[in-house]
Design a protein around this nucleic acid. Structure first.
Lengths: 191, 191
DNA sequence: GTCTATATACCGATAGAC
DNA sequence: GTCTATCGGTATATAGAC
């Protein structure tokens, strides 16, 4: 296989394992096994484990950006787009119950490790934060758009944490519905 | 020193290190260094690392129970007690910015590790959940007391995650104040 | 570009002297 | 009850054959 293909394969496998097992708990042997290459071959593509993490974070940012573009095309209204974001916790219910939010759990882990990639991980949050802010601005809430965006982010993270702790789908759906209703109430304040 | 004293010293040091560095990232050498004993001496008091974790979780539960009792004595009204809980995110601002919520980050880590102590860690959440439920019941909301308790837990966890990501104290205070106002609004529905 | 073999370090855990 | 010394396993990372 060509270098680019193998590299991408490594990033994809590492992405999933970092999410499901955590960054530190995932060894090169784990990733190599998932990709189907030897441990030694690893270092042709990445010098260190931190380099793989950086590549994974970059890939996540690119993927989320594509996702946001798609949502913007699919949903006609700002409120609909925000609700689409909130519904991640239901669409990815099973994964979130088992492994939490990919963004939240990564920042939490990297913060404790004092890892240099912490800021890059936070940038994934910022991507959503800015996008949500734009939607609230379009909703006529330019003055406190960022505050409202942060509120949605925080509420979603809270749902993800409790979902992981209790595996209670009724809770998840109830909270998501409440948050969506809150969004619509914010839209009503527009006039 | 006597066995009990050393054991307690170990649990206290492990508690702090597990919180600040994470469970897996903390080695016996780290804890031994913090306590001031040799690595070998460890195994006189605990057979395995998992045993230390179990002891740390048990200690956290006992400590939180004492804390809830104290809040119940200090605060006269159910709403005041719930607000006291919410204000943890402000009282422990600095630690939460750096290391997140001790309960939320532990359950998140143990879930990813597939660790057997996951249920014990969730029990710390349940302690707060039940207590908050009692307060909402006293507030005249017996029918959905547990739902409301879960909402407060989720909101607090969300604040903690975003606080760790952005270190934004204005955000933390704003969200805490909003949640407190929400509690008071729930109380108003009592009649 | 991928492999095997290996260097080096640290991990959790054990054995035995004191 | 605490220590030193050490075992076996695994981690990241490297060297060199193919």
């Amino acid at each position: 296989m060509d270098a680019k293909g193998t590299r991408e394969h490594i990033v994809r496998a590492a992405d999933e394992l970092f999410y499901k097992q955590g960054f530190e708990h995932t060894s090169f042997a784990d990733v190599a096994g998932a990709v189907g290459i030897s441990r030694g071959n690893f270092y042709y593509h990445f010098k260190t484990k931190d380099d793989i993490l950086a590549a994974v974070i970059a890939a996540r940012i690119a993927e989320r950006r594509r996702m946001l573009d798609q949502w913007e095309a699919e949903q006609d209204t700002p409120a609909g787009r925000i609700r689409r974001y909130i519904n991640i916790v239901i669409a990815n219910e099973t994964d979130i119950e088992d492994y939490g939010c990919p963004v939240g759990t990564l920042t939490t882990e990297l913060a404790k490790l004092g890892h240099g990639c912490m800021d890059s991980a936070t940038a994934i949050f910022t991507l959503f934060r800015s996008w949500l802010g734009e939607q609230f601005t379009a909703l006529g809430r330019a003055d406190d758009a960022d505050d409202l965006a942060m509120h949605v982010l925080a509420a979603s993270q809270g749902i993800a944490v409790m979902s992981q702790a209790y595996h209670d789908r009724e809770f998840t759906r109830r909270e998501a519905a409440q948050l969506c209703a809150w969004v619509d109430a914010q839209a009503a304040k527009e006039e």
